[in-house]
Amino acid sequence: MQDINKTHLSNFILLGFSERSEVEIPLFVIFLLIYLLTLTGNLGMIVLIQTDPHLQSPMYFFLSNLSFIDICYSSIILPRLLYDLLADRKVISYIACAAQMWFFTLYATTECYLLAAMAYDRFAAICNPLFYPVAMAKKVCLQLVAGCYMVGLVNASVHACGIFRLSFCGPNEINSFFCDIPPLLRLSCSDSYVSKVVLFVLSTFVVVANAVIVFVSYSYIISTILRMQSSTSRQKTFSTCASHLTAIILYYGSLTFMYVQPGGLEAVEQDKIVSVFYTIVIPMLNPVIYSMRNEEVKKAMKKRLCKKISSQHLKLCSFHISHGADGKVQVNDKGCPLINQ
């Protein structure tokens, strides 16, 4: 009987997207821009929510946590990918690979549950507005976020223990750009049937359980919106939910396509494309989705931008405002200060 506790390989090689060196620099530039946009968009969203008094509701508390997860999520993948695109040998140690897979699974699972918690928040706000302050009190919100991280921690640990107890005795080439579960299972020289079943069952449970919460919540939400007499109220309420629903469809759809198909472990090139979408593209898109579809976020952004422009304008004008012989500021016929040319 093979000793499944023994691992013969000390490192892996990440094959990435292509072995052709001529495409590595363009890919490096593209992914670097995506990473910078992801950091800027999500950090900007966090700062905006934390500093704007009109965005201090539970909905935006969850949104700031989603932005934080997206920053962590992409930072686990993209810096390593950028390094590999410039490196001669894309070698990652056994420990680093295990850590990358664990953190990736942690944040991916946490984001799934956080999106479901955000759906429940919208349900409570729209369908039970009088009960909303109690249902989504600050303590409850903190407990929900902590619960999302706890479930992610358990799920990541189960998968890590299940996969890295297997033997990896060669080859050591991971046909992906990061240490994901399906490509690692393909490399194992042990019987990985149990780990594949665990992957399918847990992934199905995570996606389906959260999809049920989202479906039930939005069924009540849509029913409530349709009963609203004012078209303005319907439009405003729907615009608040549309951004969140868009993010859910994109994220849950890509995860389902990747992990919940029983025979999905063999579609290697297809997996790479889907992986790029949910690990790299979606964290960049989330701030755009929420800022473009949410009226309150757009108003807060415009207010902050106008305030910044006004501040810079006044600072500039303070050095050039014209004063008369009596020391008073000279103004034009519209009451605006005259500027020295």
Rank of each mutant, 00 (worst) to 15 (best):
M292R: 08
V331Y: 11
T232M: 00
F123K: 15
S310H: 08
F103D: 02
N128K: 14
S195G: 05
F31M: 12
Y290T: 05
I30G: 06
S188Q: 05
C336N: 11
S67E: 03
K302P: 00
L32A: 14
Y107I: 13
F178R: 06
D180W: 02
I221V: 15
S93N: 04
K139W: 09
D52Y: 05
S188F: 07
C179F: 01
Y252A: 06
I92K: 02
T7E: 07
G264Q: 01
K303F: 13
S310V: 06
K308S: 12
Q270A: 03
F178N: 08
I13R: 10
S21W: 08
Y278R: 01
M150P: 01
F12V: 03
L226K: 15
L106N: 04
I282K: 00
L255V: 04
Y60A: 10
E19V: 07
I4L: 15
L199A: 05
D271A: 06
N172G: 14
F17V: 01
K90S: 08
L338Y: 04
V274S: 01
Q341G: 13
V281R: 00
A116C: 06
V288K: 03
D326C: 11
G147F: 14
D70M: 13
C189R: 11
L36T: 06
I95M: 07
Q261E: 00
S192Q: 10
A156Y: 00
L305K: 14
S57H: 08
C306W: 09
K298Y: 08
T40M: 04
I273V: 13
R304I: 07
K139P: 02
V154T: 04
K236E: 14
K302H: 09
V194N: 10
T237R: 07
V145I: 15
K272A: 00
F177R: 05
V288H: 05
